[in-house]
Design a binder for these strands. Structure first.
Lengths: 213, 213
DNA sequence: CGGGCCATTGACTTAGGTCAATCTGCGTGG
DNA sequence: CCACGCAGATTGACCTAAGTCAATGGCCCG
């Protein structure tokens, strides 16, 4: 009933509309959800990190593609027994509900970003999000002053698709933040945040960091 | 335990962060969810129509403002007894889960619109969405050929905030569709769709209308 | 050493935002 | 009853952020 599957970076995990045989949770790596218009423009609509869940009780198809951004390992369960499990165990159902509501909040923050933020604000928000995430993972004792080393799990092109920009604009904004001394970019996959305060100001969000709350 | 409340058009139903005493469902009218940046730019992140639900089991505050777009009547329940109800009755919990997943799908479609569609495509998608909705409400026997009379529940400014545009751009795109004979705008609150096929082509979506599926 | 593949940078174009003038109803009070 | 005023809508002229197109650069891997 339970099995592990791995997908190399860049491969498709699920196609839009394909019937779902499994539900799964991400064990390691990063996967992305994306939607595409007829003419090929695409928009990422979600990022799946370890512990995130794929699949929807009571639905057997999804409305977007799921792609492995880095190498990904999933832990898969057959759908039917899983649904039976959900029906008997209320607190599993409740947990799934919470996950869905968290995703919904994240999706709404992203709508504000996509609809109203400038390119600069989008990049700042993206980096700030990664910084907060990595901070969560690390020792959360004292508030680790100012700055963090971030790993970018995606190419410029993928970042652009996530933020509703082009890859050139992403690159230019990285360069701008670097020129201003807010970040450093030692190699294409790494960003060193030199001045987190200034980065957060550049996000355009409320000073108190309402996004995470 | 159950009570009705009404809110005149334009008033706030809930403020972001305010503790939720009630959960509610919309009886009549249209309400909107919106998020605002420090400097006042705002983005609507959802529309609530009759039968939609406000409130989240297991959370007592929301991350956005809820505003009455038209006059709105809500049917409210106190939160604590409602949560107890949800816990004992699995199929209520399941129904809420489905609502959350529907909202999530809608949010993701909107992310594609906000991130990648042109102004023209945004307006076409908006009108097409209203047309599909009103079609659902009406006699759904035969597929009502081509065309429909739509009521706009919002001002140009609110439409702009929904679509991530400015009100001037909304107005210009309405005028463009009118000039092309695709719609007519007899008064500010009404739109007559003259050629639904051409409108749907202008949305940029897949020909088969994947959005609704 | 050579060839992809990303990424960066520059020059140029353009969709949509901004600012401002005018128009259209509609409710209100003289 | 009418004129006034106001809120929303339209339209035009202009500007700019970001997209497009194209050349170049660095890096990893065979």
């Amino acid at each position: 009933m339970k099995s592990y599957r791995t997908f190399p970076a860049g491969t498709e995990i699920l196609w839009r509309g394909e019937p779902l045989e499994y539900v799964a949770s991400v064990v390691s790596g990063v996967a992305s959800l994306s939607k595409t218009l007829e003419d090929g423009r695409t928009q990422m609509v979600g990022l799946l990190l370890p512990s995130d869940f794929i699949g929807r009780p009571g639905r057997n198809r999804i409305e977007f593609d799921v792609t492995a951004t880095t190498d990904v390992t999933l832990c898969c369960f057959a759908r039917t027994p899983f649904e039976a499990l959900v029906l008997d165990t209320p607190h599993v159902a409740q947990r799934l509900m919470e996950l869905a509501l968290d995703e919904l909040d994240a999706a709404r923050d992203w709508m504000l970003l996509l609809g109203r933020k400038t390119a600069r604000e989008k990049i700042a928000t993206f980096l700030d999000m990664l910084a907060r995430r990595s901070q969560m993972t690390m020792t959360e004792g004292a508030g680790m002053a100012n700055g963090a080393a971030l790993y970018l799990p995606m190419t410029r092109d993928q970042i652009a698709n996530y933020l509703g920009l082009t890859l050139e604009t992403v690159s230019r904004q990285f360069s701008a933040f670097k020129r201003e001394g807010i970040i450093d970019v030692p190699d294409r996959r790494r960003v060193l945040v030199i001045n987190l305060d200034r980065l957060q100001i550049a996000t355009g969000d409320d000073a108190d960091g309402g996004v995470v709350a």
